[in-house]
Design a binder for these strands. Structure first.
Lengths: 179, 179
DNA sequence: CACCTTTGATCAAACGTTTGAATAAAACTG
DNA sequence: CAGTTTTATTCAAACGTTTGATCAAAGGTG
């Protein structure tokens, strides 16, 4: 356990959560400290994780995190309409369109008018794209293992279960979804 | 439990995780499916959560998620050097500098040369900034409660504990940190 | 079949982030 | 105390994202 730093100067990215919860509940009694803490921890861990994966695995290869996600998705699903890529990768269609400009310029993805619907654009990996994603995903997963390795297997299973529960509920309850 | 959709066309943002894990482990046996699943779930839940909070609470007020984070931090800690704001909010100093341009223009934050060190910049909330953050944080936390409410209190406690464990370990093991 | 609405994509403008370079003040070092 | 190094910030360029507008193809209706 970390010390409950009362002094703002002793805080860091992590102990800030404790400080924030204590101070906020003191001033605003209607705040649910558990909800606050959960959201703070979740977003902070996720952003540290993404930052680490991006900077240790993807940027050295000249890729961004969103670029990796789109390449990975296309590798898994095969050639796909831009619309499906947006849905499965959780991006807006405009974001996919802009991102594919870069990926196409770098020779990793091709853009093609779809046959079944002349409005739609079909995206596919180039050979260079396939080579790139397969060689990089191994490194990506090794880094994932470094992170998850601090939890026991049963703990990992529990964590996955709780996150799935949040994800499923969000899907049902959520008003604000993309598009 | 969701159906194991084998057909790519039936997938959505959520069931994509199952599909991705099955397909990847089939092709790359060295991949740890548990690590893969955990990271996918964590990043997907976090990004859905942030997207929802931003679009339902903050954008309607004319704020961005990073802008909210900085304002909230300054509200909690009082006037602070830009450096500390960067450290506690998990942003780079350049990002803070750029973001404060907007917040200052909108009259929410003031910038001042620090007395103790004439290189440093001290940031503080304006009165409008204080009003804004206090009225908005209540709505923010209500939305947090909607999300976390799908878990029981004991489940919330377990989830927080596991996330803290990840965060702490990350802090020790992590090579790639900001700055 | 002409008309209207919906759908798929892109563009434009504003914003936030990143890395690396530049500027300036402070802290060391000999 | 002059010279070097470190520290705090900002700037510049490239990238990714968002919302809202535009354009083109498809679908639906009378």
């Amino acid at each position: 356990m970390t010390e409950p730093a009362e002094n703002v100067d002793d805080l860091d990215f992590l102990s800030f959560v404790d400080f924030a919860v204590r101070k906020t509940t003191r001033v605003m009694p209607e705040v649910d400290p558990q909800a606050m803490r959960l959201v703070l921890e979740l977003t902070r861990v996720a952003s540290a994780l993404v930052y680490d994966l991006e900077s240790s695995v993807h940027r050295p290869q000249g890729w961004s995190w969103p670029g990796f996600r789109v390449l990975f998705m296309l590798w898994l699903s095969g050639p796909s309409d831009a619309k499906r890529v947006a849905k499965l990768s959780g991006m807006s269609r405009a974001a996919v369109s802009a991102l594919v400009n870069t990926l196409e310029r770098d020779g990793l993805v091709t853009r093609r008018r779809a046959e079944h619907d002349r409005r739609a654009v079909e995206l596919a990996l180039t050979e260079a794209g396939v080579d790139a994603i397969t060689s990089t995903y191994a490194a990506h997963n090794r880094r994932e293992q470094t992170w998850t390795g601090v939890l026991s297997k049963p703990e990992q299973t529990i964590l996955i279960g709780l996150l799935e529960k949040l994800a499923t509920a969000a899907d049902e309850l959520e008003i604000h979804t993309r598009d």
